[in-house]
């Protein structure tokens, strides 16, 4: 049925955006600056998998595991060797953002230099007709993407709301001055946020790379969509960011059903613009500040 296919397409798109947004939001929530290089962690993981699996012939799951681990290392190193020293020198968040963009450009160009600009395909899955599910056609990979997104969202939520590390991350995000007064180790919390966020990026890179092929500049467009999803939902909360991403997926697919086709990118930008202007805390976010009597 057409409607269920449309819904399925929306879920797939939303899941891809959510995979990007979750990691990004985790890092933003804890550190309060935009780690745009998150996009390149995603791309780097994809290309690593390509190199290990496609070029060197290492078995797929081993190669994926290694790629995810290395993605985590990449994110953590960016924090430890770039952001942290800058923060120690009292750099403002704008400076950190610029540094982040610098990393993004550097790594994208490095990838282009090593692998070339043409599109690479990770040939793990043979292209075949999808299966019928609830009136729509969906491939096993696409279903895996949706399920992974939901499972990871669950795992992240558990981390954030049911563990001490998660509680400390939220505390640092809420009130950084107070958190250091009561003795929370900022650096440790930040390290974990980058590590976990970047593992997520690694998983995203692998799944998205399989589904959409690899291109050195794909990180930028993914970040834009993921970021938009996060803003729509509410950047300060991981589940909200994920929900916003799903909303974006639905808005895009249903939007182009009724609007002329060239408007697909415009939908994302318009939504981003509207939310930043009128409700920057997102649909599920809370306006900052405690209530008083």
């Amino acid at each position: 049925m057409v409607m269920s296919q449309l819904v399925m397409n929306s879920l797939i798109a939303g899941s891809i955006y959510a995979l990007v947004a979750c990691g990004f939001s985790l890092i933003y929530t804890t550190n309060r600056f935009m780690h745009f290089a998150h996009g390149t962690t995603i791309v780097a993981a994809g290309y690593l998998l390509y190199q290990l699996f496609q070029v060197l012939g290492i078995p797929f799951f081993a190669a994926s595991f290694v790629s995810i681990c290395l993605a985590g290392m990449l994110g953590l190193s960016t924090y430890y060797y770039l952001y942290l020293p800058l923060q120690k020198r009292k750099a403002s968040n704008i400076v950190l953002l610029i540094a982040s963009i610098g990393v993004l450009i550097f790594i994208e160009n490095l990838i282009q230099l090593i692998f070339g600009a043409s599109v690479k395909s990770i040939g793990y899955i043979k292209i075949a007709r999808g299966m019928d599910l609830l009136g729509a056609v969906i491939t096993p990979l696409q279903l895996t993407i949706i399920l992974s997104s939901i499972i990871l969202l669950g795992v992240l939520s558990f981390l954030m709301y049911k563990t001490i590390l998660g509680r400390n991350m939220r505390a640092v995000a809420d009130n950084p001055e107070l958190s250091s007064i009561i003795g929370i180790d900022h650096v440790k919390v930040s390290k974990y946020s980058f590590l976990i966020g970047s593992y997520l990026a690694g998983i995203a890179g692998i799944l998205i790379g399989l589904e959409q092929n690899l291109e050195p500049t794909m990180g930028t467009s993914l970040m834009i969509k993921g970021f938009t999803g996060a803003v729509i939902g509410g950047v300060g909360s991981v589940p909200a960011a994920a929900l916003g991403s799903y909303l974006l997926g639905f808005a895009e697919n249903f939007g182009i059903w009724y609007l002329p086709s060239g408007y697909k990118d415009a939908i994302a930008f318009i939504l981003l613009f509207l939310f930043l202007l009128f409700r920057p805390s997102g649909m599920f976010g809370r306006e900052k500040g405690a209530s008083h009597d």
Binding site: V2, Q5, L6, N9, I12, A13, Q212, N213, T217, M218, S221, N253, I256, W257, P260, S261, G262, K264, D265
Partner: peptide
């Protein structure tokens, strides 16, 4: 039917769905 997409588009499923209609 005519569907136009912009540079960098990776997801054509809904366009194809509309075309098939």
């Amino acid at each position: 039917s005519t569907k136009i997409f912009n540079n960098g588009e990776k997801d054509f499923k809904t366009y194809l769905l509309q075309i098939e209609e």
